[in-house]
C-alpha cells in the first residue's frame, strides 16, 4: 500500500509537484529581488511570483478566434505536468532517491525537451504571427542547445560508467554515489569543459537573457505566450518555475552532489540551488543584453558543442 503511494506522492507533493513549485517560485522571487538590487532599486516582495499566480488564477482566459482551442488550452497543461514529473526524477543527494521504475537520466532528458516543444505548439496553435516567430526561434534555440546538453550528460555518464568498470551509467543515483566516494565532478579537470557547456546551456533552457530570444518581449511581444491570459498563462508560469528547479537540480546532481545524509542534505541542496540561481541567473541576466537568434545559434554550435565534445573525448581516452 505504502509502496504504491510512493510514486504518485513523489510527483504530486515531494519532491515534484507542490514542493518543487513552491521552491521554483521562491527561487524566481529571490532572482527578481537580487536583479532589482543590482540595478539599484528596491524590487518586488519575495513572494511576488506567488501573488502573480493567484492573480492569474482570478483572471479570465481568452481564446483567440484563430486559435485551435483544444491544443491552445492543452499545451500549457502538458508542459506543467511533464515538469512536475521531471521534478520527481531529480534526486536530492543524501535525502531523496527517485524510484528507478520512474525513469533515469534519459527519461529526464526527454522530459526536459517538453517545455520547448509545448511552447512551440502553443505559439503555432495561437494563430498569431508573433507566436509563429516565437515558434521558429524556440525551435532554433532547441536545436542549438539540445546537442551540447546530451553530450554533457553523456560525458558525465561515461565518466561514472568507466569509473565503475562498465561503459556508461545513465542512473542519477549511481552518478551521485560515484561522486560521493570519488569526489565531485566539479573538481575533475576532465569534466571542466562539460561544466562550462552546461553553464551555457541552462540560461538558454530557462529562457533568460541573453538567450530569451523566443520570448523577447520587446521584439516579438513574448512570442508564444502573446495570446495567453489568465489561468492558462499561469500554467506556463508554473511550468517555468518547475523547470528552474529541474534544470538547476540536474546541474547539482551532475557536478556537485556532495551533501550530508538526512534533512541536512535537503538544506544543503536548497543552498546550492539558491546559489546557482543567484550567481548563474540573476547576475548573468542583469549584466547582458539579448543576443540575436543567429548569434545564439552560432554560439551554441561553436563553443558549448566543442567543449562538450572535448570533454567526452577526454573522458573516453583517459
Amino acid at each position: 500500500m505504502i509502496e504504491s503511494l510512493y510514486t504518485p506522492l513523489a510527483m504530486l507533493i515531494f519532491p515534484g509537484g507542490l514542493f518543487a513549485l513552491a521552491l521554483g517560485l521562491s527561487l524566481k522571487g529571490l532572482d527578481r529581488r537580487l536583479a532589482a538590487r543590482l540595478q539599484g532599486r528596491v524590487g518586488p516582495p519575495l513572494a511576488q511570483p506567488f501573488y502573480d499566480l493567484v492573480k492569474l488564477a482570478k483572471k479570465r482566459t481568452m481564446v483567440p478566434d484563430t486559435a485551435c482551442q483544444p491544443v491552445f488550452l492543452g499545451a500549457p497543461l502538458i508542459g506543467a505536468v511533464a515538469m512536475a514529473l521531471a521534478a520527481a526524477l531529480v534526486p536530492i543527494a543524501g535525502f531523496y532517491t527517485p524510484d528507478p521504475l520512474l525513469g533515469d537520466l534519459l527519461v529526464l532528458l526527454y522530459l526536459l525537451t517538453v517545455p520547448a516543444v509545448v511552447l512551440m505548439i502553443a505559439g503555432s496553435a495561437s494563430g498569431s504571427p508573433f507566436g509563429a516567430i516565437g515558434f521558429s526561434r524556440e525551435m532554433a534555440m532547441m536545436l542549438a542547445y539540445e546537442g551540447p546538453l546530451v553530450l554533457v550528460v553523456a560525458a558525465v555518464a561515461m565518466r561514472t560508467g568507466l569509473g565503475q568498470g562498465g561503459l556508461v551509467s545513465f542512473s542519477l543515483p549511481e552518478i551521485i554515489a560515484y561522486q560521493q566516494t570519488h569526489g565531485a565532478f566539479l573538481f575533475d579537470p576532465l569534466l571542466w569543459p562539460a561544466l562550462a557547456a552546461f553553464l551555457a546551456f541552462y540560461p538558454a533552457n530557462l529562457g533568460i537573457i541573453p538567450f530569451d530570444i523566443p520570448e523577447a518581449e520587446t521584439e516579438v511581444l513574448e512570442g508564444p505566450l502573446l495570446e495567453y491570459s489568465g489561468p492558462a498563462l499561469g500554467l506556463f508560469k508554473i511550468m517555468s518555475a518547475l523547470k528552474a528547479v529541474v534544470v538547476l537540480g540536474l546541474g547539482v546532481a551532475l557536478f556537485y552532489p556532495i551533501a550530508p545524509d538526512g534533512i541536512a542534505g535537503l538544506a544543503v541542496h536548497l543552498v546550492k540551488l539558491i546559489a546557482l540561481m543567484l550567481i548563474g541567473v540573476s547576475v548573468v541576466r542583469v549584466s547582458c543584453g539579448r543576443l540575436r537568434i543567429d548569434q545564439a545559434f552560432r554560439f551554441f554550435l561553436k563553443w558549448p558543442l566543442a567543449l562538450a565534445v572535448l570533454s567526452l573525448a577526454c573522458v573516453a581516452l583517459a
Partner: peptide, 17 residues
C-alpha cells in the same frame, strides 16, 4: 521602481490588468 508595487510591464494586452 514601481516593481515594488508588484507592477510589471507586459508586451501583450492579454497579460495586462
Amino acid at each position: 521602481d514601481v516593481e515594488r508595487l508588484g507592477c510589471q510591464y507586459c508586451g501583450s494586452p492579454r497579460h495586462a490588468d
